[in-house]
Write a protein that binds this DNA or RNA. Structure first.
Length: 206
DNA sequence: TGAATGATGCGCT
DNA sequence: GCGCATCATTCAT
């Protein structure tokens, strides 16, 4: 079976982070697991942008944990939070500007039937409505840190599932940099984590 | 339906 | 030690 949909190239990630974040809404995240694959439509993201953003892990300089953010765009940045959850990010912009997009929620498209069936109250929209839950459903952990998104293990495809409307709001769960409206989500998806109305939704520009 | 809270590991001061 | 880009559960309204 040949690829029918274009994989996002490095040039996609090598752009201003707010554009990358916005354009990721509606794209499809794919993780290859052996001979099968898991596939989900991204419906919510947040931008974390370099030194000027106090909420960004890169704001206080390079460390072992955040090192990948200081590298080239188009790589994954995965870290452990609250001792038990993982968060998946895509590195954006050139190395001089350590930035990334946090993938916060997704709609299951393929490979999640079993997990949905195991839910107390089976509902695909609730399986990955948060960054920790999404990583758990995909099985993403720190072994997926620093993966090249132009490779064949973990990548993103454009399947033409663009959102009709993109909502914008403040970012969730942070204590600093709260005022910045750097969260983007599919305003018509029921799989976003919370604040489904947010700031007034705006129309997609492209 | 919403607020409060505990779980749990690790990076950083 | 403290705080964290979270979540499930409990308890109150």
């Amino acid at each position: 079976m040949t690829a029918r949909y274009p994989k996002l190239p490095r040039s996609f990630y090598d752009r201003p982070t707010l554009q990358v974040a916005r354009d990721l809404v509606g794209k499809c995240l794919i993780l290859k697991i052996g001979r099968s694959r898991k596939l989900a439509r991204i419906v919510e993201v947040e931008a974390y942008i370099g030194q000027d953003d106090p909420a960004c892990h890169a704001a206080r300089g390079k460390t072992r944990r955040n090192a990948v953010m200081f590298g080239p765009p188009g790589f994954s940045y995965v870290y452990l939070i609250y001792g038990m959850y993982h968060c998946l990010n895509f590195v954006s912009e050139p190395p001089e500007r350590a930035a990334a997009v946090l993938i916060r929620a997704a709609e299951p498209l393929q490979g999640f039937d079993r997990l949905i069936g195991e839910m107390k109250r089976p509902d695909g929209n609730r399986l990955m409505d948060g960054p920790g839950k999404m990583c758990r459903a995909f099985g993403i952990n720190r072994e997926h840190n620093g993966v090249d998104l132009t490779g064949s293990e973990l990548y993103v495809e454009d399947r033409g599932l663009n959102p009709k409307r993109i909502g914008v709001s403040q970012r969730i769960g942070i204590r600093v940099g709260r005022e910045l409206p750097w969260r983007f989500f599919d305003a018509d998806s029921r799989a976003v984590s919370k604040g489904k109305s947010g700031v007034a939704p705006i129309r997609r520009s492209k």
